[in-house]
Amino acid sequence: MSDPSQLESSGAPQLTVPQAISNLKQTEDTGDRYYAAWWLGRFRVEQPEAVDALLVALSDQSDRDTDGGFPLRRNAARALGKVGGGNKQVIPALIACLDSTDYYVREAAAQSLEALRAKVAIPHLRSLLDGGLEAAVPVPGKPHLVQPYNAILEALGSLGDDSSEAVSVAVIEPFLQHEMPQVKNGAARAMYQLTGKGKYAQILIDTLSCDDLQLRRSALLDLGEVGYFPAADAIAQTLAENSIKIISLKGLLERQIQAANALVSDKTCKVMSLMDSLL
């Protein structure tokens, strides 16, 4: 874990924890507040005073951008996903953020709720998918869709458990037909996590050989996250940086070790052998 005192980038303010908290609480300088919120998350400052200050920042009214967005709230929501585990108010506050008028606040909230393993958020996340495929369209003049579908799908897939699976599956499945590959793949990943059916992971494997490097990278990371062992050879052969392929294979390795409760087995050795070849 990084030591805040080693932050070396030129021009970036050197902060201590008390300074960061104090910068976050003051209201004169919005830049300092914004940076402090990011900083507290980056260096995982879990002190109650920091988390309290971030919670307050989550409903800040003063920092607005030209589109009506809430930049400070975005950073606060992101940081709370990293440091908010110990405070009972955080999850409800982030759930409330799912209704924000600011797309990026909603996105950050979904990602942070996933990081905090907030299963209680599942119905709220699902409701953001209302309207299904037909409603999942771009916002005119903006670089995003009406909802942060990737973040929502990923969170639902990652958080889902037996009690909510059937409902989530029904809501997510239509998104397998979405015209944007990123959304389609996000749905495939979630469907695999919820159902365990290989055919959904196969969609991600197929993406490993598509023309778009960014999509290949995402599919590599998705397959690593879900730990889909049959993808091993395809991962190793994907046209992408070895570093990402290694990370992906590491996910497969970890899943196999967990499943077999053994470090060394035929399957783990196969994955390690592939990792060795990419070093």
Binding site: K250, V264, M272
Partner: peptide, 8 residues
């Protein structure tokens, strides 16, 4: 992953 590689 490192523990596993050492074991192997």
């Amino acid at each position: 992953a490192v523990r596993a590689r050492a074991e192997w």
